[in-house]
């Protein structure tokens, strides 16, 4: 029963990703799709941290920044292939999350939010200021991943947009699969238990500090990989990737869709990624509308879109 709901989610996701291009009016939508997938991947990490474990981070963009700049710097300075740079970025993010998380995660609520925010801003500041390495606020070029060329050699000729759509879509499905695995596993139960009651979690033997740290590290890796993919896809990265607004976006996407739910994360990412695209017509109103959406959803759909909708459907069924 539970197994099938996980597989159902993944199958629907994969089907949507495969089917959507048939309705694309132009190649531009491949790019929008890839943007959504990358954001959704980062947000899936937030679902694990905030939705499962109940911990807040307003600094996860910092890890996206590390992932992004790893892809910009490692190939140039250490001759690492970009694919390995992704792994390096994830490893550095994980290590940093482990070091920073230990003291930070003792804090709760607003304090945790602000401590993580401080961390994210420090990363952004380093990226802005260490011009010799990062070239500063104007950003830096990123090498090509090289996978598209490889596929071409094997006879699979994809446009740049198509390739990134397919590749990030695949990454998202894998990321969702991992997050859904975690949900019903012993580790996932421990995370959700501490969300429910930290004190009770302790009495059943859950090492709350350790388990929180696990969630923090896992979600940092998600953010880092998403950052790497963004940088590789754009072949360019700026310090904005690590900025406070990016952290806020991630959390908002997660909460908009329903923070405990992986499909919710993807829906939230979809809506908030599309919103500015739709609003380009009235670019001046973009901030106004974004702020309004954030407030309205939190006031009227507290649980987020997907859980609220599910509740409605179930309520009708009974």
């Amino acid at each position: 029963m539970r197994l099938s709901s996980k597989h159902l989610t993944l199958i629907i996701m994969a089907a949507l990703i495969v089917a959507a291009p048939f309705f694309f009016p132009s190649g531009y939508y491949f790019r929008v799709g890839a943007l959504i997938f990358v954001n959704a991947l980062a947000v899936t990490g937030i679902v694990i941290l905030t939705g499962y474990a109940g911990q807040i981070s307003l600094g996860h963009a910092g890890f996206a920044g590390i992932g992004g700049y790893a892809c910009a710097l490692a190939p140039v300075h250490w001759g690492l292939p970009p694919a390995l740079a992704v792994v390096l970025g994830a490893a550095v993010s994980a290590a940093l999350a482990y070091l920073v998380g230990r003291p930070i995660l003792r804090l709760k609520g607003y304090y945790l939010g602000v401590a993580s925010l401080g961390f994210g801003i420090l990363v952004a500041m380093v990226l802005n200021n260490e011009r010799e390495l990062t070239k500063g606020p104007d950003g830096i070029e990123v090498a090509d991943l090289g996978l598209r060329g490889l596929l071409k050699d094997w006879g699979l000729n994809l446009s740049n947009g198509e390739f990134w759509y397919a590749f990030t879509g695949l990454c998202l499905v894998i990321g969702a699969w991992i997050a859904l695995n975690l949900f019903n596993s012993p580790s996932g139960r421990a995370l959700r238990a501490l969300h429910g009651s930290e004190i009770a979690a302790g009495t059943v033997g859950i090492d709350v500090a350790r388990v929180k740290l696990q969630a923090f590290v896992i979600s940092a890796v998600y953010a880092s990989v998403a950052g790497s993919l963004t940088a590789l896809q754009n072949k360019f990265v700026t310090p904005d990737i690590a900025g406070f607004m990016h952290s806020v976006e991630m959390v908002t996407m997660a909460v908009l869709g329903g923070v405990g739910s992986v499909p919710g994360a993807i829906l939230g990412a979809g809506i908030l990624t599309l919103l500015p695209q739709v609003l380009t017509v009235f670019a001046e109103y973009e901030q106004l509308i974004l702020g309004l959406v954030m407030m309205l959803v939190m006031i009227f759909l507290r649980e987020g879109l997907v859980p609220s909708i599910l509740r409605k459907i179930r309520g009708r069924g009974e």
Partner: peptide
């Protein structure tokens, strides 16, 4: 102090934490 965010069965399963816990990587990859 019930885990309100979980089902009844999951609450009881959480009680088995010490016996069911294992490497987190194995859990992630199912």
């Amino acid at each position: 102090q019930i885990f309100q965010n979980m089902t009844v069965l999951e609450n009881a399963m959480a009680g088995f934490h010490l016996q069911e816990r294992g490497p987190v990587l194995a859990d992630l990859l199912n």
